[in-house]
Nucleic acid binder design. Sequence first.
DNA 1: CAAAATATGTCAATATAGCTGACATAAAAT
DNA 2: ATTTTATGTCAGCTATATTGACATATTTTG
Lengths: 164, 164
Amino acid sequence: MSNRDPSLPASDLIELLFFAYRDFISDPDTILEQIGFGRAHHRVLHFVDRKPGLTVAGLLDLLKITKQSLARVLKQLVDAGYIEQRPGPEDRRQRELYLTPKGHDLIGKLREPQSRRIMAALDQSGCGEEEVARFLYAMITASAKQQIGLLNNGRIPDDARAER
Amino acid sequence: MSNRDPSLPASDLIELLFFAYRDFISDPDTILEQIGFGRAHHRVLHFVDRKPGLTVAGLLDLLKITKQSLARVLKQLVDAGYIEQRPGPEDRRQRELYLTPKGHDLIGKLREPQSRRIMAALDQSGCGEEEVARFLYAMITASAKQQIGLLNNGRIPDDARAER
DNA sequence: CAAAATATGTCAATATAGCTGACATAAAAT
DNA sequence: ATTTTATGTCAGCTATATTGACATATTTTG
């Protein structure tokens, strides 16, 4: 009954991933648009929230973009009062990044529809959160897994360790 | 032990989805870059492969981009011999789109690393393909689900129907 | 201590992929 | 015959990325 090429399994999943991610990412877009921000701002807010005190270099490493690309976005976030920069306590060249209350508020609002969509999908599909987390974690390239480890202070998401 | 806000569950999944999708999409990017194409070309090839004879309007609807945005990409694909346009048999204003052998070859090469990554992730995570398909399908907005139905000739991916 | 390396910021030019608006053409529908 | 539809195309705009060059403050190193 399937019209899929059996020599290329997972072809369905390729397409589902495209649609799922597009719809998933479109939720916060509406909110961002209203305040003149884009996805780039969202990502910065997300990671600074996840790792308060993250440095500019750390952020660049996570986002895998250039300093110049980050500069504009970060400046807008700082100027608009969503992010605060503090000189690093050890190394005063560094700028540690922190969310302001306004920043916390925004990332919460952006997270809300995405969280809601995920919870609904888990519910409808009958999949467990750890299960899906294990799959997604396994989709990630090794080098990025390290970064996730750092974000989680060494804690690996759920039980991805159980990789036989 | 988690540093997650319990009022916002699925926060882990939000991040995992970001990394997973980024790495997933980066696989074909390398191949595309070598021939001067981008992700937009990939998407067009994918959907024309999935639904041979797709019209321009149908494609616009799937991609949710404007005619003007598609124009450049489609022209390049046609000019370079990856896609063939034929006037619609019923309505001669329409341009039905088909992959040429060269187009089939390319989409196959683009699909390969993605397919490989997915299969490896299913294997490592111990998740079943249908399970993951059910979750991803549930992540998709209702209107887009209809389009997937059309692509599959009415067949709903795996058993997403079993949505209690 | 002087020199080199590092963390960050900034200026300028460029590319890609999207957008809106306007208008053209051919074919179909009314 | 007129209007609507499917498609194509021109022009200009935006967001987000890029590279290269250079400036500044601070830390590290010889």
